[in-house]
Design a protein around this nucleic acid. Structure first.
Lengths: 325, 325
DNA sequence: ACTTTATCTGTAACCGGTTACACACAGAGG
DNA sequence: CCTCTGTGTGTAACCGGTTACAGATAAAGT
């Protein structure tokens, strides 16, 4: 490994001078600078971030904690975060928590141990005490909070919008799929939908589910049509479940959207590839990731007047599983 | 920040003793150990990885370089890698390269600068000189190589299998979708399919494509049926494109699999949710990730007799877009 | 009783950077 | 001519750990 000392020796100067060239601070004579630059190029030197990080007590790393990168909603968030951060010179330490407190704690600890300069988290245990003790910039992503800066979409509004859409387009016996109880945004959209359904002139029923996984989605869809076979409108807990329901409906010979309308949530990329294409409530995941990263960077740089909360708009994406009015 | 000195003071011993307790090496008296443990608990101390990493010249970090986490094949790989690594106490530094050499180089550099102990990469520029200069354990994932340990599935065999399947099940005018030229595994499976098609008694044509993206998949599908409207069997370049083709076929009133059979590649989770469910050649992505991680760990620990190459089996997954024979 | 060995603990050097401080020198201002 | 200021550079302390080495004590062996 080539160190700053090697460069210093090669250039015939002290390490302090090399450091000043590297960081472009302090006085350095023009020809000295040139010699140093040449030595750096010659030796193909790049400074050790670990040493730098130790002295400065901060790195260029940022911790990103996601529930599960395997769920197609999260890669989009992650990508948004990464694109924004890497442009600003930061790198990502990534963890999947599986909504498991122990894993979450472990990752937060590694983040701290590695001197990250900030954390972006999309998990549900933010009220847990470890976060309080943290004196690091923290941004919540896809989660709302009173106590921390956060970037999220309006789940309640999204839920209302989904329900309103089905009602307006003529569904009369609506089934609302309730997402996992421990996932906050799932409950928000559920509440929003309930509000809207309650004050409308329609029958509705609720199917409770406990996961968003691909493996189980098929099961929820079957359960749904087993229990509520005459439903003519389904509000899915997310797009994965929505796509599974579309699938199952066709399997059972129902016509979409004539016999049953289906609306998803998230607008993951594959919604556009389902047949028929899935109508859904779009959350701008990639942009949310970018915004969270921007917000974090501003907080790190202590820029004045940084917003605490960015609420992103949700939006109805009408495709083929809802009727044209 | 609470440091080892604070612990030493609290326990009334030297930092060396605390370090010995932490690392469980050297002699430490039973009651001294106890006092230190108590001080650690009392102060809620956890050692600074950066300092440790500086002295030891190695961290507990591993660099993972993927083309694009937004493509659903890669989160599975990533998850496999992560599950295996985190169990062994390693953490992940993640980068998306977009198959862009500059980004790839930048990430490799950060990996080195942060003293990672190993790198797993799933990119196509491994022959680039920077990798040669690297004296770090390196494992290629989803890529084969003469020079480095690698975990990959047999693309050629997969391509053959896909072609063979359509041929056996009676397709006579097969269209082969050729994936992006710069992606090695795409070319392998293409070659395999070509081999099989060439020696069979069928007509076939090739559609060249330049991306795997969701946005463009729809376009490839349209182009396919515009150009080869009478095709009765399609070998897709991957599942995303496969699902888009299924979609477009239905859109055009074709019956699947009676009028046209379609076979995908990868077996991403959503293949099972398409309608009809997509027959495909499965690559065990999650397991590949795990194997790559295991291989890397063994290499890091310098275990003797570590394999250079692990070839994972591909497998036909028959679902509803191919005929029953 | 004297050496040897095992156990326990502390001091200080080290990892590779950054930076406070000291010092040298040149040109400007009085 | 002397001081002052701005510029350029080096020395050494420091960040928070790990570990080589030395010194102390007690038990064991001869």
């Amino acid at each position: 490994m080539v160190t700053i000392k090697d460069v210093a020796r090669e250039a015939g100067v002290s390490v302090a001078t090399v450091s000043r060239v590297l960081n472009d601070n302090g006085y350095v004579g023009a020809d000295t600078r040139k010699k140093v630059m040449e030595a750096i190029a010659e030796l193909n030197y790049s400074p050790n971030e670990v040493a730098r990080s130790l002295y400065k007590r901060e790195s260029r790393l940022i911790g990103l904690l996601l529930p599960d990168i395997t769920n197609p909603f999260f890669p989009q968030l992650a990508r948004g975060v990464e694109d924004e951060l890497s442009q600003a010179g930061y790198r990502l330490l990534l963890g999947n928590s599986d909504e498991n407190i122990q894993k979450e704690l472990d990752y937060i600890q590694t983040f701290v141990q590695n001197n990250v300069v900030g954390i972006i988290t999309a998990t549900n245990h933010v009220d847990y005490k470890i976060y309080e003790a943290l004196d690091l910039p923290l941004v919540l992503l896809d989660r709302a909070s009173e106590n921390y800066p956060a970037v999220f979409a309006d789940g309640r509004e999204g839920g209302r919008l989904a329900a309103k859409t089905l009602i307006e387009k003529g569904s009369k016996r609506i089934t609302l799929v309730k997402g996992p109880a421990n996932i906050k945004p799932a409950q928000d959209r559920f509440q929003g939908a309930i509000e809207e359904l309650s004050q409308a002139d329609v029958d509705f029923s609720v199917l409770s589910t406990t996961s968003y996984s691909f493996e189980e989605a098929q099961g929820w869809a079957e359960e749904l049509f087993d229990k509520f076979s005459d439903t003519d409108g389904v509000i899915a807990s997310n797009d994965i479940v929505g796509i599974a329901i579309v699938h199952e409906a066709l399997e059972r010979g129902k016509r979409i959207p004539d016999d049953v309308q289906i609306i998803g949530y998230d607008d993951i990329p594959q919604s556009r590839l389902s047949y028929p294409t899935l109508s859904t409530i779009r959350q701008p995941a990639y942009e949310m990731g970018r915004e969270a990263a921007k917000l974090l960077i501003r907080t790190i740089k202590k820029e004045p007047g940084v917003e605490q909360t960015i609420q992103m708009p949700v939006e109805l994406v009408e495709r083929k599983t809802t009727r044209k009015d």
